[in-house]
Design a binder for these strands. Structure first.
Lengths: 159, 159
DNA sequence: TGTAAATATCATATAGAGGTGATATATATT
DNA sequence: AATATATATCACCTCTATATGATATTTACA
């Protein structure tokens, strides 16, 4: 779904966000914890610092911290340096001329899904991920797809 | 979203499906119509034939037709040879251990979206795309995002 | 002031996606 | 049987994501 680099970026930012901001995290330790190539992660961290997502400090007692509160960090912002997020707005079939007026054959069916992806990335904060951990959200503010997603007639007998 | 090859596959299958099945479509003509590299498309067509999506006939008056009715061709089937569709079921953060029990921090928020993508690919038929063309579905079963997407409250006074 | 500990940067490697070009093979028509 | 018109197949090319490894630079502290 996302490219590898974006995945690393999200994971490392979430990890940093889960730690007390007093002492910065070291690149090598982060890499070991996440089981990600250290040198590669270094460059990602550097790019995230350049993008204003992280702040870095060099030298002894250096490391990385969030550049701003996790409550104000959106997933889209974190992956923006590595991924063309806006591309999800575009045509499923990769056609340049595809919009509400001149649409590819999939446009009207695909659009709501593309929008839900974009909204997820644009609205979800790093804080909300870290806060809930792996647990289901305490207040499921949004009954996920209730009407857009009628009871799956026929083929899925879920449990 | 999809890789280039999958996009070509969907487009070419939709194009073939839009034509009378009596006379098969030629690879070179399809490539020209879709503005896709001819040699590359040839290989894709061949793979689609191998996958049972298309039927091919060699020699003069040869070409490609659908191997079964468009009503029974799902998008997921068309792209399956080129894309690991099941990967969308997996973790947004690429973590191998991520499911309802042991979840990554994004799992419970991401899951409904991943499922809507999978459902779209698994349920949508080639016929439904071709039938509607680029037009919005005749019966707009779904008022797009009225409630899920409230008027951007608050933080939007940026510039 | 020297040194250890950290980030920053440079140079290179590798595999796979996407693409090109040429040739082999099958088939309908003459 | 010959030929034109198709698909099938083979060999190769190029660029980018994903790394790997080494070195340079900054900083805190003994």
């Amino acid at each position: 779904m996302l490219n590898q680099t974006s995945e690393y970026a999200l994971r490392v930012v979430a990890l940093i966000a889960s730690r007390p901001p007093e002492e910065p995290s070291h690149a090598t330790e982060l890499a070991a914890t996440l089981d990600v190539p250290a040198n590669y992660l270094s460059k990602i961290l550097h790019q995230l610092a350049g993008a204003g997502v992280l702040a870095s400090r060099r030298g002894r007692h250096g490391g990385f911290v969030l550049a701003k509160p996790a409550t104000r960090l959106r997933l889209a912002t974190v992956i923006a340096p590595f991924e063309d997020v806006a591309a999800y707005r575009t045509c499923l079939l990769g056609q340049s001329a595809c919009n509400d007026r001149v649409a590819c054959v999939a446009h009207h069916r695909w659009k709501p899904i593309a929008e839900s992806i974009l909204r997820f990335l644009a609205d979800t904060t790093v804080e909300s991920l870290v806060r809930s951990g792996g647990a289901p959200p305490a207040v499921p503010a949004r009954p996920p797809l209730s009407r857009e997603n009628p009871p799956a007639r026929g083929r899925s007998r879920r449990r």
